[in-house]
């Protein structure tokens, strides 16, 4: 069955939705591991050469007293991705178990996840901009590490996971009959 206007496939439900959600989610989580283990930034200066992982960077920022920036980085790079994993997992789990509770809240949660998804690349943006700007040969050089790529992949997989989720499934279970 196709849409008469756009000829796109029309289905009342995406039956394979949960499979895709889980698959993308797992891929995103897998990608998230090296993103935290491996260094995000390779910084070479005249005197020093350092590699910083995400957590390492946050700790370093805290050492320097930049609590605000540390908070931002921590939230954007750790809390949000992890929160997205948890949120998507919860949504998928709830659908699978035909939970009929909190259907409104769950739908809002889905909207939030989908909205945040496009802003999750802040870290990657920072790394990309720094790497492009700070190429001063011997004096100072910043290069992206493996973690940057992993982090980007992780964000993309998470977004795809969120997209694969069919929010109508939330509503398929009948709201429990309220017996007045």
């Amino acid at each position: 069955m196709r849409c008469k206007r756009c000829h796109g496939p029309i289905r009342s439900r995406d039956t394979e939705s949960l499979q895709k959600v889980w698959a993308w989610l797992i891929a995103g989580i897998i990608a998230f591991i090296p993103a935290n283990i491996y260094p995000m930034l390779l910084t070479s200066t005249l005197l020093d050469r350092s590699e910083q992982t995400i957590i390492g960077g946050v700790i370093e920022l805290l050492h320097y007293g930049s609590y605000g920036i540390a908070t931002i980085v921590f939230v954007a790079s750790i809390m949000i991705p992890v929160g997205k994993f948890i949120a998507i997992a919860y949504l998928a789990w709830a659908v699978q178990h035909r939970s009929s509770r909190n259907q409104h809240q769950r739908h809002k949660l889905y909207d939030v996840v989908e909205f945040i998804g496009r802003w999750s690349m802040i870290d990657v943006f920072v790394v990309a901009i720094l790497s492009a700007l700070v190429q001063l040969n011997a004096v100072a050089t910043i290069n992206p590490g493996i973690a940057a790529l992993s982090f980007g992949l992780s964000v993309i997989f998470t977004m795809l996971s969120a997209l694969a989720f069919d929010p109508r499934l939330i509503w398929d279970e009948e709201e429990p009959v309220r017996h007045d």
Partner: peptide, 21 residues
Amino acid sequence: RRLSFVWLVPILALLVSVGVA
């Protein structure tokens, strides 16, 4: 029959990760 091809993605990711590791 219901198994989606999307599952290849996490498997690949896992393989790559394990390989890299």
